[in-house]
């Protein structure tokens, strides 16, 4: 049996919000997907969670048009573009190594704080990479999506998370603050 040369398409696309919340006591950060923007502050044990931002987002699955295989990406919070901010960061190393092949590196983020334990598997990131490359004119350049665990120190990373913040704000966002 020959393996399917998958042709991926986006399916089950749902528009909603990535809610970023922070606890004023433990300074922890949590993120989750919500169909509706939420602004309520609430307590949980010793923590008081308040909403930092509602970022418009999209969640989706991929489906192969040929073999109908479906791959779930509901645990993907977003993609971060590597801005080459830490020399010895593995993501930046990959960016440098692949630059001659005109390949741009992105890191896939899951929702916090569970992302590190339940990382999006390499196989699924490969599928995500294939999907975006299939949509692109790959004679010009390619993209490659890596797990965010390769980032040397997330708290120092200046990568650019591709998401929609400040959309709901009545004031223009003069300067976007890092959310974590």
């Amino acid at each position: 049996m020959t393996q399917c040369q998958h042709a991926w398409k986006m399916t089950n696309a749902q528009y909603g919000f990535t809610v970023f919340e922070r606890c004023s006591h433990c300074h922890g950060v949590r993120t989750y997907y919500a169909a509706q923007d939420t602004w309520d502050e609430y307590r949980e044990g010793g923590c008081t969670w308040s909403i930092v931002e509602n970022a418009q987002t999209l969640r989706f699955d991929l489906e192969c048009e040929k073999c109908q295989q479906q791959v779930d990406f509901k645990d993907l919070m977003g993609l971060m573009y590597c801005t080459s901010c830490m020399e010895d960061c593995e993501v930046e190393c990959a960016q440098k190594a692949l630059a001659p092949q005109k390949t741009w590196i992105l890191a896939a983020f899951g929702f916090l704080p569970h992302a590190p334990e339940t990382e999006i598997s390499a196989a699924r990131l490969e599928i995500l990479t294939d999907y975006f490359n299939q949509r692109r004119d790959t004679s010009r350049s390619r993209v490659k999506i890596l797990p965010f665990s390769l980032i040397k120190q997330v708290s120092l990373c200046h990568g650019e998370l591709i998401h929609d913040i400040g959309m709901l704000s009545p004031e223009p966002f003069p300067e976007r603050k890092p959310l974590f």
Binding site: L79, Y81, W104, F132, S141, V143, E160
Partner: peptide, 21 residues
């Protein structure tokens, strides 16, 4: 190959534009 029209000026539009070419 699309022409993307937007009022967003923040730098993250470029990685997004690049991602989908």
């Amino acid at each position: 190959g699309n022409l993307w029209i937007t009022v967003q000026t923040h730098k993250s539009i470029i990685p997004a534009a690049n991602l989908v070419d």
